[in-house]
Design a protein around this nucleic acid. Structure first.
Length: 275
DNA sequence: CGTAGACCCTGCGCGC
DNA sequence: TGCGCGCAGGGTCTAC
């Protein structure tokens, strides 16, 4: 489900509903996520404390509470984090339920269980926690430039699409937005990063920033199940030029969009427009 | 060393 | 209608 735009849309939708709210109770309904939920630490760090801020790093959402604690959530492929009335029926694959003072409940559902949720000290979290220490550059803050992108790829030889999705270099760009960025930049996804010149790097950096910003404005991409914290779907999927459009006409030249596999992930591209 | 593939897990849509 | 197959937005680990 989520790449950077979806997590950012989720963050913005939750922020006004969560800031200042006190966490009354944390309930681990099913601890089986990619990393097992730690009931004791979650309760110890969160219960009784008010939420003071929501941040995003890469595809992680960070919910800061008073007293130097942070709830970290990664939605994996199928995670959803929503606010519901506390009396709402429990849904399938609900792993975590957090009751807020005032009668609402923050719920984490994740059918495929690729997600992660844990609580830790706020201080030094991004600098020291193993989930964060190896993460690369945020593409939007400040907006990525071509020369920075070229430097991040320095020394590599692999395909440019794989590079864009390497979170150790650049974070937040997953399969959809890597695919769309390369279409906008007119670059073939299999082109080696060693064979990209300054002009192309500049176009690609602009495309990455433009695609991510537009997707945030349009509420993210809802292919199956993405929703923000209030359950609202996004609508960037109608703006997708090539992703998921194998066999359809290219919106720019009318040629046939093709699909190929790279590192086990589907890539869609126009053979005429992307070189 | 960097890179490619397998793997984790459930659900859905498609073709038969 | 039912079933099997392929595929799905993530990340990590292992084997070259």
């Amino acid at each position: 489900m989520p790449e950077l735009p979806e997590v950012e849309v989720l963050r913005r939708s939750l922020e006004p509903r969560l800031i200042g709210r006190r966490i009354e109770r944390v309930e681990v309904r099913s601890p089986a996520l990619r990393e097992p939920l730690d009931r004791r630490t979650l309760r110890r760090r969160l219960e009784g404390r008010a939420i003071v801020g929501l941040r995003r790093r890469s595809k992680y959402l960070l919910i800061d509470v008073e007293g130097d604690s942070t709830l970290v959530v990664h939605l994996g492929m199928s995670g959803r984090l929503t606010v519901a009335p506390s009396g709402a029926p429990v849904e399938a694959h609900e792993h975590l339920a957090i009751d807020l003072a005032g009668g609402e409940r923050l719920r984490l559902r994740d059918p495929r269980r690729f997600g992660v949720a844990f609580a830790a000290a706020t201080a030094g979290l991004l600098e020291r926690d193993p989930h964060f220490v190896r993460l690369g550059r945020e593409p939007l803050s400040p907006p990525l430039t071509g020369s920075e992108l070229a430097a991040l790829a320095g020394g590599g030889r692999g395909p440019v699409k794989t590079f864009l999705m390497d979170a150790g270099r650049l974070v937040g760009v997953g399969n959809i937005y890597a695919t769309e960025s390369l279409f906008r930049a007119g670059i073939h996804p299999a082109r080696s990063v060693a064979r990209i010149g300054a002009g192309r790097w500049e176009r690609l950096a602009g495309a990455v920033v433009g695609v991510l910003e537009q997707a945030i404005r349009e509420g993210g991409t809802t292919l199956n199940d993405f929703a923000d914290g209030t359950g609202q779907p996004g609508y960037f999927q109608v703006s997708l030029a090539v992703y998921g459009r194998d066999g359809e006409p290219c919106p720019r030249c009318g040629g046939r969009i093709r699909r190929l596999l790279q590192s086990g992930r589907s890539t869609f591209y126009c053979p005429a427009c992307q070189r």
